[in-house]
Amino acid sequence: MVDGRSLTRRRAGARLWLSLTWLGLLCLAALFAPWVAPKDPLAQDLFLGRLPPFWVTGAEPGYYLGTDSLGRDVLSRIIHGGRVALMVALIAGVATCLLGATLGLLAGFLRGWVDMLVSRFIDIWMAFPPVLFSILLIAVMGPGLWSIILAIVVIDWTRFARVIRAEAMAQGAMDYVASARVAGRGRLGTMVREILPNVLPTVVVLLTLEMGIAVIVEAILSFVNLSISTDDPTWGGMIAEGRTSIHQAWWVLVFPLITLFLTVLAFSQLGEGLKDRFDPVLR
């Protein structure tokens, strides 16, 4: 009989490697976008508007995934749009993680008034629809890369704080923490040296998931035209344009959508795969 656990682990391993491969390719493409992209993503040519992708009749050589209504190359715009998406994922993800995990750790380990304060704030934050909240913040701060990043941090820190607070509370009740205290470690020392290493796997999983969420939030904000300047290519902006010309040029919507779909899926599968890896029951 096949051992069920090893089967589960193999499947988890496969999805880990698939996700990592896709994200790695995307990172490379984004990093070397000016060299990888076949065309200038901003170059317009009205005579080459709405060219179909290469396998459809009427395609122009060199424009592999077709062009949009202004004659801009879809593939090059996807590659350059990846720069914004991954930058937001990385910076916003890490910043959100630092803020949220720190607050969660403090609340869960120190308890008392710190916990009260943090928990109240989490309650208030949970009362806002996140998309509406982020659109509101961008409207207030003005569009731009840093506004998006700041909006994500301001809204999503509760995702980390809630989970890490609960974990820190559970860890704090364990015997090893008490013995560390008896052995003479201070409160802060115990938190950093004993609790933190034990909640770190959860933090890493949440960080991976958060990066996927950040990519989506950036796409949504670009979709409602509140992202970076409208000339620069973003996946959400391309999707918004594709949505309006869906009956004339489906490829303007489909290719950025596939890219976004795979990226979000890769981040979340990476997170889930890591969760299984770290889970002692499965291991």
Partner: peptide, 22 residues
């Protein structure tokens, strides 16, 4: 279930538009 959970409503909406709208 895993697929449905990994992808948010916004993307499902776009996929549905393509499938049942176009």
């Amino acid at each position: 279930n895993g697929m449905a959970l990994s992808v948010p409503d916004f993307l499902w909406g776009l996929v549905l538009i393509l499938l049942f709208g176009v």
